[in-house]
């Protein structure tokens, strides 16, 4: 390696006094402050912020419409367009779940039910949202397309018990999802 000798840049008299540079600095900082106070902070538009700084004011401003398509929020159960609950309680999600957040109690569908041919459905389906790590493995592993990660991110509760989403709650968040699995449909 050749030795490179670096010369410090020669400063002229004005730069040596550095008073002008300090004044320039005041202008820069003040311009940022004034723009922030006027609600026009640099980059506020790109970040959909409040304008006072690049920060979004959370409870008043939501980032729901900023979420990407692949956002992984709370896992939920869905029913199909015919009102059938899709889960057949195969328990694959329960076994794949890395933090063991899912607990399923399977049960059989009685023979007089409309969907008796599906044979099984969960009688209880709990997801402990304190344990859930939103990895999306349950969604990936589900053969029946019954469990989905929706865009809900506000999972809150006052007690631990409140943080366990039971079957009713999961269907409530999940809603209906059409298509994807056709094997249970009546043959035409």
């Amino acid at each position: 390696m050749a030795v490179v000798k670096l010369q410090r840049p020669k400063l002229n008299a004005g730069e040596k006094i550095y008073f002008g540079a300090i004044l320039k600095g005041f202008f820069i900082t003040m311009s940022h402050a004034v723009r922030s106070l006027l609600g026009k902070t640099t980059g506020a538009k790109d970040l959909a912020s409040s304008g006072l700084g690049v920060t979004m004011q959370f409870p008043e401003q939501r980032w729901d419409n900023q979420l990407p398509e692949y956002y992984r929020g709370a896992p939920t159960l869905v029913i199909d367009e015919q009102g059938r609950e899709r889960c057949v309680s195969c328990q694959l999600c329960e076994f794949i779940c890395p933090p063991k957040a899912i607990r399923i109690t399977p049960s059989e569908i009685p023979t007089d039910d409309k969907w008796a041919k599906v044979e099984k459905r969960p009688i209880e389906f709990d997801i402990d949202m304190i344990r859930c790590i939103y990895c999306g493995m349950c969604e990936e592993v589900c053969p029946e397309q019954a469990i989905f990660l929706r865009k809900d991110y506000l999972v809150t509760g006052h007690t631990r018990a409140e943080m366990v989403h039971d079957k009713k709650k999961l269907y409530e968040i999940g809603g209906i999802r059409t298509g994807l699995v056709n094997k249970w449909n009546e043959l035409k």
Partner: peptide, 13 residues
């Protein structure tokens, strides 16, 4: 608050 607006933040509000 002042340092926050200088640095494009919000500060305690």
């Amino acid at each position: 608050r002042f340092c926050a607006v200088i640095q494009d933040r919000v500060g305690p509000n």
